[in-house]
Design a protein around this nucleic acid. Structure first.
Lengths: 254, 254
DNA sequence: CTACCCGTGCGACATTGTCGACCGCCCTTC
DNA sequence: GAAGGGCGGTCGACAATGTCGCACGGGTAG
C-alpha cells in the first residue's frame, strides 16, 4: 500500500483534535499538539475553513469544527443502506418492547450509533445518533466483538475502562462472554456501562453472513430484567428484529 | 490570501461529490467528474478511507461517505454554542405553540438545520438536523436573508427555484419582503416551499448584534394561519423565543 | 473466448506543500 | 506609559511531496 497523502492525514488529525477538545483551539495549540510548524497548520486550517469543515471565531481567532461536517454526516446517514433498511424494523421493535432502540456499527474502537428510536411515550431524551458507545460494556459492542475478529484484536491494544463495578475488564472474561454470545446468538449488558441501565443486543449480517452492525434495546434494569436476568420475551423480540433486518439486507439490491 | 492546499480542496470536492450522488460512485466516475487522473483520485480516496471519511464497498469497489463524518458532525453539534443555549428555549417554544421548531444557521447558500424539536404529541417525524432548507422560501431563510448582506449578495448569483406557486422568485420582490421583515422584526412563509405548510421565523443575534441564526415554528397552514395571515399570538411566541436566545448568547460566556 | 472496463501499483517529474523566520497586533505587566 | 510576550498571519526558498500516465490483473458482458 503506497503512502497516504501527508497533508490529508494531517488535516484529518486536526479535525479529530478539534472534535476532541471541548473548547475552541488556537492556531498555536493546534500546531504544537500535532508537532507542526505554525505556517503548515495555518495553511491546512485556512483550506479547511474555506471548504466549510472548520470555522473561525472572528473575535478570538480560535478554530472549531464547521457546519459542512454536519451536512456531510447527514448525507452519510442518507446513503447508509443498513440504516435505511432497519428504520421500520427498529420502530416495530421499540413499539413491541416499549424500550429505546439503538442501531450501531463498528467504527474505530467503539460502536457508532447510526439510528436511535426513542422509548415510546417517554420523557424527553437526547438523540444519540453520531455518538460512540464502548465496545466491551454494551450489548451492541459485545455482539460486534463476538463476531468481528478485527474488533476483538484491536481491543487488546489498550486498557479497558471500568464504567461500573459490573464492567468486564479482563480480556479472558470477555473472550468467554463472547463465546457464550456466539453460542446463544445474543448479548446482554446489565449495568455494565451505566448504573440502572440494561441492554439486549443481536447481530445483523449481510447476505454473505458478514457482521455489518447490531441492534439493541436499552432501558431501566427494573423493566428489562427479572430476577437478575434479562426477560426472555425481550430477547426474542430483539433477535427477531435482527433477523428481519438481516433478511432485508440479503434480499433486495439494485 | 495565499493559495489553498490543492490536495485538500480536491479531497473536499470528492466528499461533496459523494454526498451529492445518491448512490455509491466508482473511482473512474470520481476521477472524470472532477477532471483528475485516476491515480490521483485513487491516492486521495485511499487516504480518506483510512481516515474513516470514506468507505469502500468490498465487493464492487465503489466508494461512499464514511462513518467518521457522522461522528465529527455530532461533535460539531456538541460545541455549537448557539445550539446549546437555544435547546431549552426551543423546547419551550414547541410546547407553547404546539408546532415543530427549527433552529437554523446560514451555510453556503441555504439554511442548515442545527436543532429540531418535534411537534408535541404528533405522529412519527423524521429528524432534519443536518439537512438544508432553501433561503428564499422559508421563514428561517428569509430572516437570515433580511439581516445578512452576504447571503443576499450570493442569492443573486443563481436562479431561484419555485417550489410552489407562492414562492418568491424575483429578486426585487425578495428585497421588498426583506425590507418588510426588517421593519416588523419577523418573517413568515406561507406555502412557499411545501404546500400546506406555513412557518414563522425570527432572528437570533449575538451580543454584537450580528445575525448568528434564526428560529422558527413550522406547521400545517390551517393551524398556523387565520384568514390568510399567520396568527399574531404565534408570532409573539417566536419573537419572544428569539429574544430569549439572543439574550442568553449575549450574557454568559465561559 | 475475447474485449472492455474497472480498481490498483509503480516510477519519473516538477509542482506543491512544508518549514522557519519575520511582521503587526493585542493584552498583560511592570 | 512603555516594554514584553503571546497570538494569528505572512513570506520565500528548498526539497519533499503529490501528481501524472501507463501498465497489470481480475471481473464481467457480449
Amino acid at each position: 500500500m503506497p503512502g497516504p497523502i501527508q497533508s490529508l492525514s494531517r488535516a484529518a488529525a486536526i479535525l479529530r483534535l478539534l472534535a476532541g477538545g471541548e473548547r475552541r483551539l488556537g492556531l498555536s495549540e493546534v500546531a504544537t499538539s500535532l508537532d507542526l510548524a505554525k505556517g503548515t497548520a495555518h495553511g491546512i486550517l485556512r483550506t479547511l475553513q474555506q471548504e466549510g469543515f472548520v470555522e473561525q471565531d472572528p473575535e478570538t481567532g480560535k478554530y472549531q469544527l464547521g457546519a459542512e461536517l454536519l451536512r456531510l454526516g447527514q448525507s452519510y446517514l442518507d446513503v447508509h443502506e443498513l440504516r435505511a433498511r432497519a428504520l421500520v424494523w427498529a420502530d416495530d421493535l421499540a413499539r413491541a418492547s416499549g424500550e429505546t432502540v439503538y442501531l450501531g456499527v463498528l467504527h474505530q474502537r467503539g460502536v457508532l450509533i447510526v439510528h436511535h428510536v426513542f422509548r415510546p411515550d417517554d420523557t424527553r431524551q437526547v438523540l444519540e445518533v453520531g455518538s460512540m458507545h464502548p465496545l466491551h460494556s454494551t450489548a451492541l459492542g459485545k455482539v460486534l466483538l463476538a463476531y468481528d475478529p478485527v474488533a476483538r484484536g484491536e481491543l487488546g491494544e489498550g486498557p479497558l475502562e471500568a464504567h461500573t463495578p459490573r464492567t468486564l475488564t479482563d480480556l479472558g472474561d470477555i473472550d468467554a462472554e463472547c463465546a457464550l454470545i456466539r453460542e446463544r446468538g445474543w448479548a446482554d449488558a446489565i449495568e455494565e456501562t451505566w448504573e440502572g441501565v440494561a441492554s439486549i443486543g443481536a447481530l445483523i449480517q449481510d447476505r454473505r453472513r458478514n457482521p455489518v452492525g447490531a441492534v439493541c434495546i436499552s432501558g431501566a434494569v427494573e423493566r428489562v430484567c427479572e430476577d437478575g436476568f434479562v426477560r426472555p420475551q425481550l430477547v426474542a423480540s430483539v433477535r427477531s428484529a435482527a433477523r428481519a433486518i438481516s433478511r432485508d439486507l440479503g434480499a433486495g439490491r439494485f
